[in-house]
């Protein structure tokens, strides 16, 4: 998992393949602490490398978005892959609790 400050009060999170979405508690504190430390208002979660967003992964995303909101940070998602968007759209009954952007640049400005 890579966390990179990218300016404009945004922190870019690139999860990488090693992230285990079934263990959110392993990551939440680290991420929230860094967000607070850097005074970020936005966390951009980059899903470029994530082709499959299953129930567990989606659960992790909603949990992170919820934790960010409590800390006064907006989590947005960028680079959702077509296959992931397709499977998620078929499974979800409501809109996700985070905004989605086509890429990181738009997520930073949006």
């Amino acid at each position: 998992m890579h966390l990179t400050p990218i300016g404009d009060g945004a922190l870019l999170l690139e999860p990488g393949v090693a992230l285990d979405p079934s263990e959110p508690d392993h990551y939440l504190t680290t991420i929230l602490e860094l967000l607070a430390e850097r005074g970020c208002q936005r966390l951009i979660y980059d899903l470029r490398e994530c082709v499959v967003v299953d129930e567990i992964y989606y659960g992790w995303l909603t949990r992170l978005a919820s934790a960010c909101r409590i800390c006064g940070v907006e989590m947005v998602v960028a680079n959702v892959q077509p296959a992931a968007a397709y499977t998620l759209a078929r499974r979800l009954s409501d809109d996700p609790p985070f905004r989605c952007f086509l890429d990181v640049d738009r997520a930073r400005c949006g």
Binding site: V77, A78, V80, P82, A84, A85, Y86, L88, A89, R90, L92, D95, P96, C100, F101, L102, D103, R106, A107
Partner: peptide, 12 residues
């Protein structure tokens, strides 16, 4: 509705 949601997930 699914299509609209998928479009939104892609950021459009």
């Amino acid at each position: 509705i699914q299509m609209v949601r998928a479009i939104g997930l892609m950021g459009a």
